[in-house]
Simulated assay, not measured.
Amino acid sequence: MRGIGRRRACVDAGNTAAGLPSKARTRRRLLDHFERSASAAGFRLDGDQQEAVRLLANAGASLTAGTALALPGRRRGLYLWGPVGRGKSWLAREFFEALDLPEKKRWHFHDLFRQLHAHRRDAQDPAARPPGTSAVDMAIATLLKDCSLLVVDEFHVHDPGDGQLLARLLREIHRRGITLVATSNYPPERLMPSENFHSLFEPTIALIHSTMHVASIAGPMDYRTLSAGRPSGQKNDGGARPKRFSDGAMVLAPEGPNDTRIAEAGLAWPTAAEARELRPGSQPLPALRCTADEAWFDFQDLCEGPTAASDYLTLLPHSAHWVISGVPRRGDISMNGWQRLSNIVDILYDADVPLTLICAEPLDLGPSASPSAVDVSRIASRLRTLGSVGVGG
């Protein structure tokens, strides 16, 4: 804590020497930024968003001044949760981009864990670590190095192993006095929904409540219907524009490779000669096609096989469009299969990479009574931004 105090003193001295704006001016600038950004995206802030903006502006003003955060209960973090499409990620992104703070980091939850696992692998050699430290300790230290603000989108946890790692990360964030801003579709009480493992995660839920101000963002409007914060791409001087997630499609093709709707969707079914075996991680992953333009997978290989979010993140930069064929009825998809599909949709949506799903029957995106019901709502909201070929309604 003495080191943190010295860091704040240095920040205060730097602010004074550089003549940076006062806390009040920084707060006003952040408030104005949110209003302008919302207007540019075609909507007005609702009541819940306005309260979140007020909290974020107060936190941002305190962070840049190096003073104690002005959050309720003197907490150092903010946990924004609510239904899909209420602008939580937009709020976090705008806050991060507008804040003039060099020691800041922002990750999607999947990428955060990819970084943690990669750093842990790099620290496996005990001889390369300080005495008394583990590979996990080193991974967390590397991740949080030179960080005073950490923003994490789509905060959730299902796997008990990830839950243990997350608990250690949150404890270290608190110990270092780092400000954490997280967005989630879950209230803290619904993290780790498995009845078998939820009780093990309850101390971490208590830590979230004691160190973060929890705010609900649950206004009546689903802003994704307005493309809030995701304005349509404009053509450039060459007449083209970057492809976006919403340029993908849901394709109903009950006749498989011979279905005329495949061509209607602008696709050509892969030939046997195009099949490849990829190794994004420790396990091989069959691909029907993998080029710079397109990565094409069968659903069973990609979602029902032993793949992980880290595999999708590794493959992400190599293809401009993902296609998944052989998508079965939702009732025939295992819980793990649906979770993997959810991870893929989240990752591609966050990176704005087009996704096309080819189904023999329409994919049911209705509500579910399963423990993953909130995930279903979020994924359904994202998939409904896709175009459709041969899908009625």
Rank of each mutant, 00 (worst) to 15 (best):
A17C: 04
S89R: 03
H213Y: 14
A65K: 07
W296E: 10
C290V: 03
Q124I: 09
F34I: 06
S227L: 14
S148M: 05
L99R: 11
N185W: 01
A57Q: 10
C359A: 15
A272V: 04
Q300A: 14
W322T: 05
R175A: 15
G248S: 13
S89Q: 04
G229D: 10
V251M: 06
R106L: 01
R241I: 05
P257L: 08
R171C: 11
S368P: 13
P160W: 02
R382V: 02
N15L: 11
S89K: 05
S227M: 09
S199L: 13
L45D: 06
L91N: 00
E189F: 05
R171L: 13
R378H: 01
A68S: 14
K105E: 03
P220C: 13
L341T: 12
L365K: 03
L226I: 09
R25N: 10
R176E: 10
G77L: 07
E172W: 00
I208K: 07
D122S: 14
S210G: 11
T225W: 11
L191Y: 06
V251D: 04
R36W: 03
D32S: 15
R378Y: 04
S148H: 00
A65L: 03
L355A: 12
D311I: 01
G392C: 06
D350E: 15
Q164V: 15
R93V: 11
N196V: 12
S194T: 09
L313T: 05
G366A: 08
N236A: 06
I347H: 05
G219K: 03
D46H: 05
N15Y: 07
V181R: 00
P102Y: 08
D146M: 00
D352V: 00
Q300P: 05
F155C: 02
A38W: 02
G5Q: 14
M192F: 09
A92S: 13
G73P: 08
D12L: 15
L200Q: 13
A41F: 04
S89P: 07
S334L: 06
L200G: 10
M221C: 09
F201L: 02
G47F: 05
D12N: 14
Y186P: 00
V151N: 00
T271V: 06
P367H: 04
T16I: 12
A17S: 05
E172H: 05
G387C: 10
K145F: 09
Y79G: 00
F299N: 00
L302V: 12
D162F: 06
A41I: 05
N185S: 15
R120T: 07
V376N: 04
L91T: 01
W338C: 01
D32G: 15
G82V: 11
A228T: 02
E361G: 06
R378L: 02
H156V: 03
A373W: 11
T271A: 11
Q115A: 04
N343H: 14
A59E: 07
A215N: 06
L252I: 14
G14P: 06
L149Y: 01
W338I: 00
S334F: 03
P280L: 12
A61M: 11
T307N: 15
L78G: 04
L355P: 12
G392N: 09
E51C: 10
R2V: 13
G337V: 13
S37D: 12
A206Y: 06
K235Q: 08
E154V: 08
C303D: 04
A92W: 00
A18V: 03
D137W: 01
V151L: 02
D237L: 12
L99Q: 10
S334E: 08
R28D: 15
S148L: 01
L144V: 09
